[in-house]
Nucleic acid binder design. Structure first.
Lengths: 250, 250
DNA sequence: GGCAATTTGTTCGTATGTATG
DNA sequence: ACATACATACGAACAAATTGC
């Protein structure tokens, strides 16, 4: 006994080492968005691997949203600014293969949104509050204009809220989950009965949320927002799953 | 005017079409975890592309956690069960390049955890409650045993809670963010002063949470859990950022 | 345990269409 | 318009690894 404790070594592919090095350079800031990677031929020299290996590595980096390469580009692959695209992709996959129900997704939104509102009620500036107000105004104007305009204004409101909340992780996850939910009910949302009444009630709810935030009552604002989201989406959720959503309404 | 409205066509690479088809097969259930893909040479015939193209596609699918291929395996690439590995990877990247602060991550955990507890307080079975109790017992026994055992028991507790909450998205995100947080403070957690006092207080908090859940008081249990997490992690968070965490304590 | 067949990992060469200057 | 350098894609080849006999 005693002696050195050796660890099992997993065979690591050549392309993985290339990925690791580029990834490290990007995440450490040595390579910034907008900058370019050397050309594939240059990379195969620097890493002393073949062209195919370089290309496989670039495919993986591209799948992770770190770089983008275009045919014929003399500048080489471009380092991209962070986008939640990869996060979006893996959550979408999760939603499909794990069969996440719409109820679970909406519930997740209710949780994140009310948390953001709770935070925003404390941290918001007057300007941010005004921005939320303008978004609700836009929603009012968009009732006639159609789904897309209304939806865009609604997104603007919630974006303003989560930004005011100051948590980037909440911001990004909210964005990702919202788009997944919208995609799931996109075809049903237009043909919902009482569409206009739903919109007007939603606007009313949003105004109540703003009022509560202005008064500094975060818990109330959060409770109101959960109620608003429940009212808006409950119609699309299976009856038997609404109970779980109502559990968040107190 | 009039005439057909043509849509812009983005040049789609050959490997992407391969990825799309395999991805569709996996997500639709036509290909189940444990099943095998044809060999690379067989795939190049079926898709009528070169082997390099097949391999680039396989690398992307592997990066997304859908398949795994090993050298020499005569059965071809294996279709994997879903793991949050890809989600974990993209969140870790997010944490690094977007410079998520520890405070934001902990805040996110406080939000998800208290939501799960709120749900679990309503939906938990007696058996699940008992499982949480056993986890706390294990924590008590692990105070002497060391960090790892205590941490494992703590994980078991929170796992039992989120499972009882019944939202798989919350479950997975909790798991991902927890491991990121732990990695960030791994080296500091062992050398924290008053380590044992921290553990004992944490155990006490967990017992209070269970009691509140048993009494059916979800909001109280959630509030207690936020407080518990704040107490446990506040020491690792920059002074100036603790305010944002306290905003969740009411 | 050893051996043969097959597969993946990797390299190299070549042809083609494309973007830049 | 042209030349250059690039990414895309194909095909052949060899080494290393795995499976099944």
């Amino acid at each position: 006994m005693g002696g050195p404790r050796f660890e099992p070594v997993r065979a690591v592919r050549a392309y993985e080492r290339v990925v690791e090095q580029v990834e490290e350079a990007v995440e450490s800031g040595a390579l910034s968005p907008g900058e370019r990677l050397p050309s594939e031929r240059e990379l195969m020299v620097q890493f002393s691997v073949s062209r195919s290996t370089v290309r496989e590595a670039l495919r993986v980096l591209q799948a992770r949203g770190l770089v983008r390469s275009r045919p014929g580009d003399p500048h080489g692959a471009e380092v991209l600014p962070f986008t939640p695209a990869a996060l979006h992709k893996s959550m979408t996959t999760l939603a499909r293969v794990e069969e996440l129900s719409l109820a679970e997704l909406v519930q997740f939104r209710m949780v994140l949104d009310s948390a953001a509102i709770l935070l925003a009620a404390r941290l918001r500036t007057e300007e941010q509050l005004a921005e939320m107000g303008r978004a609700v105004e836009a929603m009012r104007g968009a009732v006639e204009a159609g789904e897309d305009a209304f939806g865009a204004a609604d997104v603007a409101f919630h974006d303003a809220v989560v930004r005011a909340g100051g948590n980037k992780l909440i911001e990004i996850c909210t964005d990702v989950v919202r788009s997944i939910v919208l995609k799931l009910i996109a075809e049903r949302i237009a043909e919902a009965p009482d569409r206009e009444a739903l919109m007007r009630r939603s606007i009313h709810h949003h105004e109540e949320v703003i009022a509560a935030m202005r008064a500094g009552d975060g818990p109330l604002a959060a409770r109101l927002s959960r109620k608003a989201m429940y009212d808006y989406y409950a119609g699309y959720v299976e009856e038997c799953e609404r109970g779980a959503l109502r559990a968040l309404l107190e």
